[in-house]
Design a protein around this nucleic acid. Structure first.
Length: 430
RNA sequence: GGCGGGUUGCCCGAGUGGCCAAUGGGAGCGGACUGUAAAUCCGUCGGCUUAGCCUUCGAAGGUUCGAAUCCUUCACCCGCCA
């Protein structure tokens, strides 16, 4: 090891558990030590927003940027039209204009992760690209002659996603089979255009990533590198990133900052401890101290709080974090609801989700249903019968009861709750 | 092409004429215990104008006082033979 260049980023990424697979690591360390490296990660527009599952990618991108390397973020306007083969079944193709819209939204969503450190800390500014730029003009002849010649079908068939699909009833379309060629070509283009020599991505992307490395080598002779992140899991085997019925999105209109904060705050103790190193940019010592604290005094939920605070700040910014925290305190605090002032209540309930009621007040059951706390009127009645419905923190016993005028809290609000965690506001209309 | 088996509620899976909105398990939801955890226990788990009514058991039609259960046709899936 004597004389081997020390590289803190790789050490840091290992320490945080962010590296699942890597190409020749010794060579990569040397490469990173030689000077600023331009690296990239790609995001396909398969939905209108990114979700918490994408966050690990940004943690890697940020760590590398902090070490002085230059990030390139690719949004897959072209690959999003083709579809990366999933293990299970063929993807439904989305309309071109729909995908184009998603590209725009995701592009905006990505910005804060890397732009802020660039502006504030003088780190290398990110470059944003869309692979439609070079994939769109590519003719069938160009693709098949210049790029296709470098691909062996045998290797393409051997990729895990492809072989899984070939062996399934679903089979695989030529469209999705071709996906790896396009992603590989992205690496080639970015290597040529921006001097990119490192690609990072999820370990499920490893096959596509290595296809790119091979293509770059065959076409230019250059040696390039790759790192992949592990799949983030939950200790109970459930899928990571789901909460009350849906994905946890980064878009504040799809998942409110309050709900986002609560998602992390409600993590299992075991999960919070394993996730903290992945997502926290605190020092190794601080992270360890938080984990120790979590083991000694689990009820304080130090690890969960750290995750919720850091990530809400990162994704939604300081003002949204402050409001999400205040909302949680207001709604779950020991204080009497009536003692809260109108401003606090308004902020908290707006975060939690609210419905406005004009004119006659409907029954509690109807309010539960309209606020979305219950999916149907039947479910709302059932909830009341089970003792799980609360109005202003008091258990409701009659589903058909109509709240009296004295139920209005400061600011014209009522606090409706289902179970322990699901809260919604009812606001008096005009 | 021939023969046989199958398609049930979010998922798995019982049910072969009335006692079936449909056994059981899982997921989900609520309660208790806790810490707005986990585990455990209890309850709940199609909809509605909720002691009643309406729509569900692959699709359509039929038999019957009455069908998830019987008959016919269609669609899809799975075995065995060719």
């Amino acid at each position: 090891m004597t004389g081997a260049p020390v590289n803190d980023v790789i050490d840091e990424l290992h320490r945080r558990g962010l590296i699942a697979l890597s190409t020749d690591e010794a060579a990569l360390r040397v490469h990173l030590a030689e000077g600023p490296v331009t690296y990239y990660a790609g995001f396909d527009p398969t939905a209108q927003s990114l979700h918490v599952g994408h966050l690990v990618q940004f943690m890697v991108l940020r760590a590398l940027q902090r070490a002085g390397h230059r990030p390139v973020v690719l949004v897959g306007g072209a690959t999003g039209l083709i579809g990366d083969p999933r293990m299970t079944a063929e993807r439904q193709l989305n309309d071109r204009d729909v995908v184009a819209g998603w590209v725009q939204r995701i592009r905006e969503q990505v910005a804060p992760f890397l732009d802020l450190p660039a502006e504030r800390d003088g780190l290398p500014a990110p470059v944003y690209v869309n692979n439609l730029e070079w994939t769109q003009p590519l003719s069938a002849i160009d693709l098949l002659r210049d790029i296709g010649k470098h691909f062996r079908v045998g290797q393409m068939l051997a990729k895990e996603a492809v072989s899984a699909r070939l062996n399934s009833d679903a089979g695989i379309s030529y469209t999705e089979f071709s996906y790896q060629i396009l992603q590989a070509n992205d690496y080639r283009e970015l290597h040529a255009r921006h001097g990119v020599t490192l690609q990072t991505g999820g370990s499920d992307q490893w096959g596509n990533i290595t296809a790119g490395i091979d293509l770059v080598r065959r076409t230019s002779g250059a040696k390039t590198h790759a790192l992949s992140t592990p799949l983030v899991t939950k200790s109970d085997g459930q899928k990571f990133g789901k909460s009350e019925g849906g994905a946890v999105w980064l878009d504040p209109t799809l998942t409110s900052p309050y709900a986002f904060f609560q998602f992390w705050l409600n993590a299992d103790d075991a999960d919070a401890r394993t996730w903290l190193p992945l997502y926290s940019e605190r020092s190794a010592e601080e992270v360890q101290a938080l984990i120790d604290e979590s083991v000694e005094r689990p009820a304080a939920r130090a690890a969960q709080r750290a995750l919720a605070e850091e990530l809400t700040l990162l994704v939604h910014g300081p003002e949204q974090l402050r409001q999400a925290e205040a909302a949680g305190r207001a709604l779950f605090g020991r204080d009497d609801l009536a003692s809260l002032d109108a401003g606090t209540l308004t902020a908290a309930l707006t975060e939690a989700g609210a419905v406005t009621v004009d004119g006659e007040l409907p029954s509690v059951a109807v309010l539960l249903q309209r606020s979305g706390l219950a999916a149907s009127l039947s479910e709302a009645r059932r909830t009341v019968k089970e003792g799980g419905a609360y109005l202003n923190n008091e258990r409701v016993t009659d589903a058909d009861a109509v709240p009296g005028d004295d139920a209005w809290l400061p600011g014209g609000w009522m606090v409706l709750r289902r179970g322990k965690r699901a809260v919604a506001g009812v606001q008096r209309g005009a």
